[in-house]
Design a protein around this nucleic acid. Structure first.
Lengths: 238, 238
DNA sequence: AGCGCACTACGTACGCTGTACGTAACTAGG
DNA sequence: CCTAGTTACGTACAGCGTACGTAGTGCGCT
């Protein structure tokens, strides 16, 4: 028994294979793929050590040979979907390129609705995360600002993408394990909101709500937020 | 046995007291306060139904008379800290007022480090949330843009505050239940990052990292992000 | 060549979680 | 006054992460 270390550990620093002993039955990629499959099909809460092990066809505790803590399994998952990013050749138009990156991130999150929840915590620097960061910096090459400002742009933009997409998904998805539909829940929440507005305690809020006609176009709201963030970094727009 | 409804429910719509039966021993505020006390002292994960009940001095299952699901307990907590917001008289300078609001939110989150994690999910409209929204709109009265744009400003700004403060807290806090310190963990992560950079696979990332000298000033980064978001909505700055 | 040890595999078990359900006590409305 | 709706809460269950112990495997070193 080598003993699971009671010392900080980054899963990416731990070598996947170290000489001695029987050949491992799986790779990290196998495990990540299994976890992703479960999360996609049954939601993040269904990603338990037991389920992942069953999906792989091995004993529960065998997983701990590959992944010291469940949290690390999450890191594997994040890294796995990070591979879906298309690292295209920068066009020279940094705004267009960054918009494309953001839209692609949003698309990935819509494919894997559990991603925002995992990204909400502090995130490690997995290999694919680093590759994506590097790609963004490559896209920002034409932008004439200090390197530090560029990383701040990437951070801010990614934060906005995660927040907005995460909110959209959460409102649509919260009912996954509930015995009622999203529409029913939304109706109840809206009814309550209406009753509060009717009290007259929130005049400006009421105005804002009654002014808008029809349902909100989440996609348009998202795109406007992106444009505004980019504006804030664009020397030609200020 | 009235039966816990298998129908959508907003806790704020359910009346706190309905005629019949023995007098409840606690108010919702009591319960929220107990949960907040535990979360502040021992972290969000220590907020279990059993712990909260023990803190209140009642049986575990008695809590379910006040709160149909644990998720609703979280809503109570969010609303409780929402009361800490100072709803000051708008000064007429919307930028300064919104900055103040943002800094205050950040301060609340630093007092209650579990708030960002709870805010990350889709959030309901608790009474204090509505009051805060109304207050923000009051601060934005002098800004000459459509009401819809104002709500988008509030949403974007709040999102940025939550993301940034949440990240800061998470990196500092992740070691709460770990057998090592935040410094140790950070050192290991940085060592790994250094080893990756040393491979030369990420030239631009390397440049960005080596360029900056000394540790990052999180507070300054946060303030810059705020300014940029406000810039994007300021007619005089574009 | 062969021994030893680091490694994989995994069953069992523990302490913890949210909460369904049943029962007893209580009190306001008809 | 009675009865129906409430509060209170003990018990129980399914499920979680993971500590620990044991058995088998095959590389690296002497």
């Amino acid at each position: 028994m080598a003993g699971r270390a009671a010392v900080p550990e980054v899963i990416w620093a731990r070598p996947e294979r170290t000489g001695r002993g029987p050949k491992p039955a799986f790779t990290r990629a196998d495990i990540a793929a299994a976890a992703v499959r479960i999360a996609d099909a049954q939601g993040l809460d269904a990603v338990t050590m037991r389920h992942v092990a069953a999906e792989l066809g091995c004993g529960t505790m065998s997983l701990y040979n590959y992944v010291p803590r469940k949290e690390d399994l999450y890191e594997l998952m994040i890294d796995a979907v990070g591979a879906e990013h298309e690292m295209f050749e920068p066009t020279g138009d940094w705004r267009a390129d960054m918009l494309r990156n953001a839209e692609e991130t949003r698309a990935i999150m819509h494919r894997h609705t559990w991603v925002p929840r995992l990204m909400a915590g502090a995130f490690g620097f997995s290999p694919n995360t680093l590759r994506y960061l590097e790609h963004c910096l490559a896209c920002l090459e034409p932008l004439d600002v200090p390197a530090g400002t560029k990383t701040e742009l990437v951070a801010l933009l990614n934060g906005v993408v995660t927040t907005y997409t995460g909110n959209d998904i959460a409102t649509a998805e919260r009912t996954r394990s509930m015995p009622w539909t999203a529409e029913e829940e939304n109706a109840v929440r809206m009814a309550y909101l209406g009753s509060q507005i009717a009290t007259g305690a929130y005049p400006r809020l009421t105005a804002a709500f009654t002014e808008q006609s029809g349902p909100v176009d989440l996609e348009a709201v998202f795109r406007r937020a992106l444009e505004r963030v980019l504006d804030a970094f664009d020397p030609e727009r200020r």
